[in-house]
């Protein structure tokens, strides 16, 4: 239950971090941000990185900023930064609602938004937010910088498009349009546990019907994603129970559920039906 030996490197700048990653990435080097997923895995000896590049001292990565209609979240911004709204209106409220479902308070003071994205646990709330809103991930390496769309970033269970020499420096979240509504519902057996299934929905209401619906599911498949079938069941429809049931049914039918010790495929499909409907019910203004 003690981590295996490693060499710790402490860069002061992003350039320093990417230089170290270029050198040590191929030698089983890993980035250490909040450490709230990596360190437990190391304690179990399921991970034994030879090098840890500790980016907590890189000041330029600790910022949340708004640029036009995008919220830029730096690599060392903690979950706890979202306890209070960091953006206006529904965007801030959505983030401060979702963050309450991430582990527990003392984990949220250390764990980072971008760390969750790079870790890509299918049950990660931030990965669901990134997928549903269509986030862009900014990856820097000694070779340069590239921007990766959420749909291309998450490749599977704890698997992303990041190369071993790339540092996720920033996630750019599109800000919800004004007058947007959102609903979030997560099912797990104990407070703070990993989601067995969760849904995030956003939309606007125009002329009494749903416009620009987004329905994202997490914890249900190998990676979080939007469910076009459920969105189609919402678009142009009035906000009523019948609409929500149709969308929930479409989501349940559309997914390819993962199976694990918590839930088999059939049960997860039932949960998806329930969490989608409940997220929609919670979204009603």
């Amino acid at each position: 239950m003690k981590p295996a030996p490693f060499v710790r490197h402490v860069p002061a700048t992003v350039g320093g971090a990417t230089d170290m990653l270029a050198e040590f990435g191929p030698q089983d080097g890993r980035i250490l941000a909040g450490g709230q997923s990596l360190v437990p895995i190391m304690a179990f000896r399921m991970a034994r990185p030879a090098h840890l590049i500790d980016i907590n001292g890189v000041a330029e990565l600790a910022r949340v900023s708004r640029i036009d209609n995008t919220l830029s979240i730096g690599a060392t911004v903690r979950h706890a930064a979202f306890h209070r709204p960091v953006a206006d209106a529904e965007m801030g409220r959505m983030l401060s609602t979702v963050v309450r479902h991430i582990a527990h308070y003392p984990i949220r003071t250390r764990g980072t938004f971008c760390g969750s994205i790079a870790h890509a646990d299918p049950a990660s709330e931030w990965c669901l937010v990134a997928s549903t809103l269509g986030a862009e991930m900014v990856a820097r390496s000694k070779r340069g910088q590239r921007v990766i769309a959420a749909e291309d970033f998450f490749e599977g269970i704890m698997s992303t498009a990041l190369a071993e020499d790339e540092l996720l420096t920033e996630v750019r979240l599109p800000i919800l349009p004004s007058q947007a509504h959102f609903g979030f519902y997560e099912f797990n057996r104990r407070a703070g546990d990993f989601a067995i299934a969760m849904a995030l929905v956003t939309y606007r209401v125009t002329d009494g019907v749903i416009a620009e619906p987004r329905v994202g599911l997490g914890g249900a498949e190998a990676r979080p994603r939007r469910i076009p079938e459920a969105e189609a069941a919402l678009k142009g429809r009035p906000l009523e129970a019948k609409t929500f049931q149709a969308a929930a049914e479409a989501a349940a039918q559309a997914i390819d559920p993962i199976e694990d010790i918590q839930a088999d495929a059939e049960y997860r499909r039932e949960l998806v039906r329930a969490v989608t409907r409940r997220a929609l019910e919670r979204s009603v203004p």
Binding site: R8, G35, Q36, V39, P40, A43, D54, N56, A80, Y105, P106, I107, T109, R110
Partner: peptide, 13 residues
């Protein structure tokens, strides 16, 4: 000022 799990931080940090 933060409550943290001290088993999930390295002393050097």
């Amino acid at each position: 000022d933060d409550p943290v799990r001290s088993c999930l931080m390295f002393a050097a940090q």
